[in-house]
Design a protein around this nucleic acid. Structure first.
Lengths: 256, 256
DNA sequence: CGCGATTTGTGCACGTCTTCACAAGCGCCT
DNA sequence: AGGCGCTTGTGAAGACGTGCACAAATCGCG
């Protein structure tokens, strides 16, 4: 751990970039840091301390420093991190220097919303194709894109060099869609359908299930209710905080 | 660990239910088990082995057994778990025996989709109110509910006894909405806005950020790309699997 | 009634993640 | 130049989560 000199940032140095293999937990937090950094940059900050950035990202400052140290450490002791440099570094590590093309399959309720979500475009992605199995939806134009039939996937994959597939179909169709995506070479899938997908080794699947999130909250709600039913043992020390709203550490980001 | 006899299932036994305080990781998986169990029940299965259920939920069978053992263990050795009983137990622990009322704030693109999502109704929740700050949206009817102004939140909270708030506003408005939710007594919030919320102790916040999920996938995509650029060191052993599609363990649910 | 097949529940070891606490390094001011 | 305050980077300890492997329990059959 001595030879660093900007490992292979956007201005590529020639040799293999040598992606450090980061702990999965760190990877899951980098996007959050990135978002916070963009906010800071927009606000005109040139540098930021680990304390400041960690507060903006809602995590512990020691954790943030350790996370950043994994990707080579671009901070200056006594000063902090250079905001622009750090943005560049994280975007490089996350592979966001190239704008990845996303194919969205299933333009029902949720699919419509995703197709219209600006957050993708502004954060490194381009929705390159909308697909659906329902012929009555094919041809519809959403946000400047025409919905095509899912059978055209092979052609679309080549035309747009799709990197990531998003599944927003009903659960019953999801496995079939996943198979089709895999067949055309997609190795990263974001699945919104409430079901488990089985995919070959080497393909990454992440799942977002809105009902599950609510059910987790419901558990905590249930537990809190069953606790306040008891006499004031120790909970009062918490609920009777003078400050009203103060704590921030409560935040529980997904993927933690 | 000896006196169990159905701790306090739906037919409440009188005394304090004594919610076991489960590991957070277990809580995050229970909803997945529940979904798999409902599928099994619909398919006519009366019992299921840990092996079978774990496959349906996409997890390791030992992990599943340990998870279930935390909530009191309703299995029979040599036989498996009673599907109906397990559903009942998990729903009780998750607090789904009462259908919780959800207030959805922000009926833009994403809010519309959420308002129309059947998954909520079928899995223990009831969208009880739609709110928005934009006067031009107030009065619109979505899925049988009329959008009301967010200032009416105090009234709505009382009328519907809101348990959970869902924020689907732009990031700029999210903190303000969160404050208003907290002010009317909501202690569980699901946040879709890409920002960190600061809330008082005792309030649970879960965050879902669609762009972050894509960015995590992007990282893995980037890494895979930088690996296949190298000569066949050991990756070939994986990519050249004879089976084609076989592995299932790849699944990476959110919150892991 | 006993035996074997089956499946749960769990002790234990291992790996990963988190957090504290502090030495090392940097810039600024005198 | 030297010292002081501030901030990073990291060793070490502890908490947490995972997975193996096996004993204990149950059923069915002869």
């Amino acid at each position: 751990m001595s030879q660093h000199r900007h490992p292979g940032a956007p201005g590529r140095a020639g040799a293999v970039p040598a992606l450090p293999d980061l702990p999965e937990a760190t990877v899951a937090r980098l996007p959050e840091y990135l978002r916070a950094l963009h906010n800071l940059a927009d606000a005109g900050h040139e540098t930021v301390s680990s304390e400041g950035l960690s507060a903006a990202a809602g995590v512990n400052s020691a954790k943030l420093r350790k996370d950043l140290s994994h990707l080579g450490s671009y901070g200056t002791r006594g000063v902090g991190y250079d905001v622009a440099l750090l943005i560049e570094q994280i975007e490089y590590v996350l592979g966001l220097t190239q704008r990845r093309a996303v194919a969205l399959v299933g333009v029902g309720n949720l699919g419509h919303a995703l197709a219209g979500y600006d957050g993708f475009a502004s954060r490194g992605f381009r929705i390159a194709a909308l697909l659906d199995a329902d012929p009555s939806r094919v041809g519809e134009e959403i946000n400047g894109l025409v919905v095509r039939h899912v059978d055209e996937l092979p052609a679309v994959a080549v035309e747009e060099s799709i990197a990531i597939g998003v599944i927003a179909t009903p659960a019953a169709a999801a496995q079939s869609v996943a198979d089709q995506l895999v067949a055309v070479g997609v190795t990263s899938i974001l699945n919104f359908a409430p079901c488990v997908l089985s995919v070959p080794e080497g393909v990454d699947v992440r799942k977002v299930d809105l009902a599950i999130e609510l059910q987790i909250l419901s558990f905590h709600e249930h537990r809190k209710a069953s606790l306040t039913a008891l006499p004031a043992t120790g909970g009062s020390a918490l609920t009777a905080l003078p400050g009203g709203l103060a704590a921030t550490e409560t935040q529980e980001a997904i993927g933690t």
